[in-house]
């Protein structure tokens, strides 16, 4: 089955979606969407550096995203610049820097579009191994810090007062985010990673009555978007990464319709959104 490029794409995409769903929930809960954007844009800088120093791309992307996320945590603590301005500044500077560094290496011919928008149809067996290996590590670590991380998400001071170390779980979560970005870059590209993280989580919100449930539903919805997007891209010959995001968005729009609404009501008897 792995001999077929389309099957490989499906398996890789589903693997990424299963990890992106739960991580994406925390990104939505903690309002880190722009933060995620910054990290994923920085991923291109990681790609450029990987070529420059001839190291593994996934590893380089993880390293750069990880360093930037920890640096951001520190900067936000003391910076006088507002958080969103700081993120906007870093996000686009990192993207531009990546593009410039890539252009400097004139001896190199890279498929820039593949990095920006993903190249899921060129997924290799090694990529699948990285996605599932990394994915399992991410999910295991997330499960380990789930309760303290969630408590710190609801209220940081409350969690801290009652014996949780929010700083530590936040740092672990940032590294998990960097890992997810590194392993999903191949599927949707640096410009669209945040979409794969956020859209399934936002869709799942309407159906979920608890945080754990929302994480599982987000993973399933993400996987459905991957399958739908890839089938669509095969049918209409559209680029695969954007097609997956469009499919996820279609599911989100569908979730706003009465059909989903009824499902949601049955699920969360008390939690009917009034907005």
């Amino acid at each position: 089955m792995l001999d077929d490029f389309f099957s490989r794409a499906l398996i890789a995409g589903i693997g990424v979606a299963l990890v992106a769903g739960p991580i994406g929930c925390f990104i939505v809960w903690r309002r880190l969407a722009y933060f995620g954007d910054t990290l994923s844009h920085a991923a291109l800088l990681g790609v450029a550096l990987a070529f420059l120093f001839e190291v593994n791309i996934t590893l380089a992307v993880f390293a750069v995203s990880g360093i930037i996320s920890i640096a951001l945590l520190q900067l936000q603590k003391r910076a006088t610049l507002s958080s969103d301005a700081l993120l906007g500044l870093l996000s686009h500077s990192a993207l531009a820097l990546g593009l410039v560094v890539l252009a400097f290496m004139t001896w190199l011919r890279v498929d820039l579009l593949g990095y920006l928008f993903g190249d899921v149809l060129a997924v290799s067996r090694t990529d699948i191994a990285i996605i599932y290996g990394g994915g399992i590590v991410v999910l295991a670590l997330l499960a380990a810090i789930w309760h303290p991380l969630f408590a710190a998400t609801v209220n940081r001071e409350l969690a801290e007062a009652e014996g949780i170390n929010p700083e530590r779980v936040n740092a672990v979560f940032m590294l998990l985010m960097a890992t997810v970005i590194a392993i999903s870059m191949k599927i949707v590209g640096v410009l669209l990673i945040t979409a794969l993280l956020i859209i399934p989580a936002a869709t799942a919100r309407r159906l979920a009555s608890g945080p754990e449930q929302m994480a599982v539903i987000a993973a399933i919805i993400g996987a459905a978007a991957v399958v739908g997007g890839l089938l669509g891209s095969l049918e209409w010959n559209t680029p695969s990464g954007p097609s997956i995001v469009v499919a996820a968005f279609a599911l989100f729009v569908l979730s706003l319709t009465p059909l989903f609404g009824r499902l949601a009501n049955r699920n969360a008897k008390h939690g009917i959104p009034d907005t």
């Binding site: 939505v28 998400t153 609801v154 919100r205 009555s209 608890g210 449930q213 907005t275």
Partner: peptide
């Protein structure tokens, strides 16, 4: 606790 958090 805002809307994004499903919390009973």
């Amino acid at each position: 606790v805002d809307w994004t958090l499903p919390l009973t």
